[in-house]
Design a protein around this nucleic acid. Structure first.
Lengths: 200, 200
DNA sequence: ATAAACATACCGAACATTCTCTTTGTAGTG
DNA sequence: CACTACAAAGAGAATGTTCGGTATGTTTAT
């Protein structure tokens, strides 16, 4: 593996454990088995590194996951579930960086730190949300076409409500980590589905 | 105003603008019109100060708001709305520190930074969530007693679903600040209500 | 009543440490 | 020779903290 990607992977691991500000450049350099010169050969600054890392290891992953689920076969409800469980549960296995699910909590917290510190990350975050929202809306529209989802509420409105519930599940779990995330996610999607489905 | 509370208020203002890590002790000391010695007379460390500030200005406020709404008169739906709008919109006026609503976004991000950095803050965060969850459940139980809310779903289950939707609205808005928060919150509570109310 | 003893609140220069980033040097390769 | 990819050393600024000192107020003893 080249020095650059070694630095990036190491950085992601460290950041996942300690956050942006609590991981120093010296630490990164040592853990990456390189030197200051080596580092500055590949990156202009610490910030530049962090931005690249976030972009590659978080947003790239999130957005390609959305793309993958787009071609996934199943009912609208199954699609929603798969989408969310993918983002929530599997993202921790990015490049096998960490085998433990626990880290997704940190990943979320770090993302928030990034949003607060760097406008660029805020922008990527926003793009991802729009991307996810579009996906949700597509799925709901599909359900409407198939006659499974009620038409009396605007699908865009339903998509927003769905997405807020789903993101809320994550945030709630960040605050109460003892809550079983997958279980909760599934049961909340059940409620959402019961609300939007057509009752016979 | 005493030196200690002056330091605390100034710190809260600064932290709200720049986050924990980006506000230095020198900055705090200068802005508080005191000196290094004066500071260390009242606080053992910078971290100790931050913890006290978060506890006083955020969690104290959140929890007393819940208490206030407990004695508020109105329908269950109105109570839910008032609760959330209070936390979301008015909390920015804590001790008239800041007149701008915009800051609530920062407040949330800072809270996340705190949760990530300090276990103590994570604990307070958790307590607040439980407190809020209990409140939500009380309100729903009240609605059930009044025959307004369906009984076929466990009220605890409904409370969790409600809270996740509501917190999701906040998180979604953090990612997409152009979204009108109050409006969104009200319309999401409408959906929730339509789901849990008894249809005639 | 007065002096001594102590406590509290605060000052500010000095401290050691850590941080990011620059500069200079060098081994390998085409 | 020139270029890439790194190594080594350290400059320079900023950080949180310590510590000796002062001014003011409050007990306590005589």
């Amino acid at each position: 593996m080249g020095t650059k990607s070694r630095i990036m992977e190491t950085t992601f691991k460290l950041v996942l454990k300690k956050g942006f500000t609590d991981v120093s450049l010296n630490e990164i350099i040592k853990a990456s088995n390189t030197t200051t010169g080596g580092f500055y050969h590949h990156f202009n600054s610490k910030d530049a590194l962090l931005l690249e890392v976030i972009e590659k290891y978080i947003f790239n992953y999130f957005n390609t996951t959305i793309e993958q689920i787009r071609s996934f076969e199943g009912t609208p409800k199954e699609k929603l579930q798969t989408m969310m469980l993918s983002i929530v549960a599997e993202c921790v296995n990015i490049n096998e960086v960490s085998p433990k699910k626990v880290y997704y909590r940190n990943l979320h917290l770090i993302l928030m730190e990034g949003v607060q510190k760097y406008d660029v990350i805020g922008e990527s975050y926003k793009k991802f949300y729009h991307n996810l929202l579009n996906f949700t809306k597509e799925v709901i529209d599909e359900g409407v076409d198939q006659g499974m989802i009620r038409q009396d509420i605007d699908s865009h409105e339903l998509a927003i409500f769905t997405q807020t519930s789903i993101l809320g599940t994550i945030i709630m779990w960040v605050g109460m980590p003892e809550m079983p995330l997958e279980e909760r996610m599934i049961s909340n999607i059940d409620h959402l589905w019961n609300y939007m489905k057509i009752v016979e």
